[in-house]
């Protein structure tokens, strides 16, 4: 690619950027959910919203019992939806680098949360890890987050 084509591409991006800045009108989701007091209950978005509107498919973000284990696709397609209610620290409870305590160890009183590593997971991982190691790799695939693996697996 020539320098001219790259320059043109960057100029187009910059133009879009300026256009976005100059609009001043919200084009997407609000930065924060207007009801800040959702509390510790699992929120069901469709309890207040329709299944979908022009902005969002609310049903995809219903916090069903399995949501903690299968929210990957929901986050990937529109992460700003999560950020309306959750600070980044919420994600860091599980995904934070060098996170030593699992959420169930840190908040033992929140027994209703279906965390993947509840109870004595060390023994169960022998079986689950063999069935679907790709499930482990999503969070333990890099050196920092696999420190717990290295102790036994080298």
């Amino acid at each position: 690619m020539t320098a001219y084509a790259k320059s043109l591409g960057l100029a187009c991006l910059a133009a879009l950027f300026v256009f976005a800045c100059a609009r001043g009108l919200p084009l997407g989701l609000p930065l924060a959910h207007p009801d800040a007091g959702l509390g510790e209950q699992r929120p069901m978005c469709t309890g207040c919203h329709p299944g979908a509107d022009a902005y969002l498919s609310y049903r995809r973000y219903d916090h069903t019992p399995a949501f903690a284990e299968n929210h990957r696709l929901a986050v990937r397609v529109r992460p700003e939806t999560c950020r309306m209610c959750h600070a980044d620290s919420w994600c860091s409870q599980c995904h934070g680098l060098d996170q030593e305590l699992t959420p169930s160890q840190k908040h033992p009183h929140q027994v209703w949360r279906r965390n993947p590593h509840r109870g004595n997971y060390l023994t169960r991982h022998r079986v689950e890890g063999g069935v679907n190691p790709a499930g482990c790799y999503k969070c333990h695939g890099n050196p920092e987050s696999s420190e717990t693996c290295v102790r036994c697996h080298g």
Binding site: R23, G24, L27, L31, D88, C91, H95
Partner: peptide, 15 residues
């Protein structure tokens, strides 16, 4: 307005 977000520093990229 939520149309722009620029972050600099240590951060989680989850998208």
């Amino acid at each position: 307005d939520g149309n722009l977000s620029i972050r600099g520093g240590r951060q989680n990229v989850l998208s």
